[in-house]
Computed example of a mutant assay.
Amino acid sequence: QREWLTVVLLPGYAPELNPVEGMWAHIKRSLANLAARTLSNLATLLHRRLKALQYRRAILDGFLAGTGLTLDRPD
């Protein structure tokens, strides 16, 4: 137990509460019409798209907002 730590119990399977699900949906939509020649080409493209997302704070915040969760401590 730590004063700075708050544990929130979530259901065992709840993709709607996982911001990463929104991020992957966003990435998959951007790849909808892609026909990569090799797995290496696909991996390179994914790496670039994920790296670009890293600098788009508003989109990342939107993935969290889409879950209805916050980073604030519960009262």
Rank of each mutant, 00 (worst) to 15 (best):
E16W: 12
A58D: 11
E3F: 00
P15D: 01
L34Y: 07
N18Q: 05
V7W: 12
W24D: 08
D75G: 10
G62M: 14
T70E: 02
T44Y: 09
Y55R: 08
Y13R: 07
D75H: 03
L46R: 02
A32W: 08
M23D: 04
L53A: 00
A25M: 02
G12F: 01
A65R: 15
W4L: 12
S40I: 05
D72I: 05
A25N: 13
K28I: 10
A43S: 14
E3T: 05
R56W: 01
T67H: 06
H47A: 12
P74A: 12
R48Q: 15
A65Y: 13
R29M: 11
L64H: 07
F63P: 01
Q54C: 00
N41Y: 04
L31I: 06
Y13L: 04
D72Q: 10
G62K: 03
L50C: 13
E3G: 01
W24A: 07
P19F: 00
L45I: 14
L42A: 11
L39C: 08
G68S: 03
G68L: 06
D72C: 09
L5V: 15
T70N: 05
R37Y: 04
P15N: 02
E3S: 09
R49E: 13
L71D: 07
T6Y: 09
R29H: 07
H26F: 09
E21F: 02
H47L: 13
L42I: 05
G12H: 08
Q1P: 09
A43C: 11
T38R: 06
T67M: 08
R73P: 00
G62Y: 11
S40C: 03
P19V: 05
G62S: 15
I59F: 06
L31G: 04
K51R: 14
G12W: 03
P15S: 06
L69G: 07
T44V: 12
T38Q: 04
V8A: 14
R2H: 12
S30E: 13
N18M: 05
I27K: 02
R2N: 06
R2L: 11
A14G: 06
E3Y: 04
G66C: 07
T44M: 06
D72H: 10
L42C: 04
Y55P: 00
N18V: 06
E21Q: 03
L39F: 13
T67R: 00
L45V: 11
L31Y: 01
I59W: 09
W4C: 08
L45M: 10
L9R: 15
R2C: 03
R73V: 03
P11Q: 07
E21A: 02
G66R: 08
L31E: 11
L9Q: 15
P11Y: 02
E16I: 03
G66N: 15
H47E: 13
T67Q: 03
R2M: 08
A52G: 01
Y55C: 00
A35V: 14
I59T: 14
